[in-house]
Design a binder for these strands. Structure first.
Lengths: 152, 152
DNA sequence: AATGAAAAGATATGGGC
DNA sequence: GCCCATATCTTTTCATT
């Protein structure tokens, strides 16, 4: 789908605050509220906007530990297999196939180090995983949503 | 701040859809709309809820390339220095200090490989960076918000 | 301290143009 | 795309537990 400059600004405003009213957005992009809503509906149904979510402080909900784990897999492993395995574990918040030495990179959140160790054990028990290399997050410096070129 | 079971369910519902109405949430947690609003206000002001955002398909807004870059830094580098440097680049969507060989891990999104290369050059030009190791994302298998133990 | 009911104002949403 | 009408939602006030 092709986005014009107004669509991009609407998306950028919704990324900044998903609960903005259509009227507020409209005031900023010089459209009426119904016009904004129609664009947002179109952006949603076309898949540009995948949903609206809430940014939660992980520590506040009891998840204080975070890690990135490189997976080294057997030769015949497919991305689909990794996906299925990753989705089995609610602690996996991100998973990517990557270039370089590792085959995949998995982003984990866990309650504490004990929980993390347990998830790592479960991951390493997957039949296609030959080895892993973990980076435990010491501090989260930056974490932002996908930037949208806003064309201000 | 201490969250009770109802707070956790409210947070989980808002993570699933940040635009749910207070009445809808209230119907699911057996509270009136004003009661839900008061809890959400409290969760926001206490920092449990950091904000509401929109999940965008990066490809749809012109960002087709993604990478994770390990940074190796000089001995005297502080997390604050890395934070400042990372925030200078809008392509940095995540940055973390980590245990292991690397000092930091940076998550980048860029329009294309050329753009990514240019960002990498800028990162490597930071005075405290001694070397980098890049993993280019071949496919995004999983990407979900922080899970909230929902206690259903 | 937290809740529900009611009321007022703001917003969402569909139809007509 | 806009304007309008109505349904729904948000938010404040107030009384109750």
């Amino acid at each position: 789908m092709q986005l014009d400059a107004v669509d991009q600004r609407i998306v950028a405003l919704l990324v900044a605050d998903a609960r903005s009213s259509y009227a507020d957005i409209g005031a900023k992009v010089s459209l009426s509220a119904p016009a904004v809503k129609r664009r947002v509906d179109r952006l949603r149904s076309s898949g540009v906007i995948k949903g609206f979510t809430t940014v939660v402080d992980p520590a506040a909900v009891g998840w204080t530990t975070e890690a990135f784990v490189e997976l080294f897999c057997t030769g015949r492993t497919t991305p689909a297999q990794i996906t299925v395995a990753a989705r089995r574990h609610p602690e996996v918040v991100g998973a990517y196939t990557v270039s370089g030495q590792a085959d995949a990179l998995v982003h984990l959140r866990a309650a504490d180090i004990g929980h993390l160790e347990q998830v790592l054990e479960r991951l390493r028990a997957e039949p296609f995983v030959t080895s892993t290399r973990s980076m435990i997050v010491l501090s989260r410096l930056v974490e932002t949503p996908t930037p949208v070129p806003a064309l201000e």
